[in-house]
Amino acid sequence: MELTKELEEAIVAPGPQGFHPPSAAELGVLTPDEGYGLKFGHVVEEERAMEAMAHTMFTRKNATIFPGPMVLWAWNDHAADKAKAVLELAAQIPDVLIIPMPDYRPKYPKVEPEEVINPNHPNLTIWGNKIEVCIFIGVHCHYANLTLKMIRAGTNCWTSAICAEQGHEDAMFTVRDSDATKIRRVAAIFKRVREEMGIKLPENGSNVRFTGLQSRVHDGKTNTNPLDFTIETPGDGNAAAFGHKAEHMQKEA
């Protein structure tokens, strides 16, 4: 799949766009309706947006998944299920990095780019790891908007947003209403595109690459298999214990 023509017509083009570029909304880009996604600011069927995400994650350097709090924390069973789906998606991308955005507090005096990404200065993690393509998933909308604009302004990183709500117009590619089922659909499309491109995964399944810091924490291991890790289900002290159910995390009817 060649994206050259689309790039020429892009409304939301990859950066660096310079200091304080106009937001996608200022450029007239609205979030897509149900069943649709965005590709460079244009509304497309969501499957086309997913294919574009896959293509770029397989072709650009240092592909990275940035999981946010809504899939990092066991808020409830649904969040745990989504986290599993994210790992299944990661399992389809060779040499992928996973760098979490566990919260939104500014990290001072210094961000450790091999440890976290922070919405207040995401460019530091992008630059620090030379990331040229990434997927955000499970980040609260307000902070995803902030982050995506900053990345487009100051880096050459292509961004995708797999969003549980309306999608993100400031990402190059986005799909909306992403519950665990849809994330698994994204993973299936990644698998298809990868096989069409003839890209193979490591035979031992260890396709997730550690950052330097992650590697040091894991006794020098350089890679790991995302499907080896079990997701712990919600237990005492979490949201489920306070009566919150999986439906609370799902899209309203």
């Binding site: 990092l72 924390w73 986290a83 909308c141 307000h142 902070y143 712990e232 919600p234 005492d236 919150h244």
Partner: peptide, 24 residues
């Protein structure tokens, strides 16, 4: 859970499990 910003202290309430802790 559905706001565009997280609610205060929600993470503390949910802190028992960091799902990717083994991985990352």
């Amino acid at each position: 859970y559905r706001g565009s910003v997280p609610v205060l202290d929600a993470q503390l309430d949910c802190l028992v499990m960091l799902q990717f802790k083994n991985l990352i």
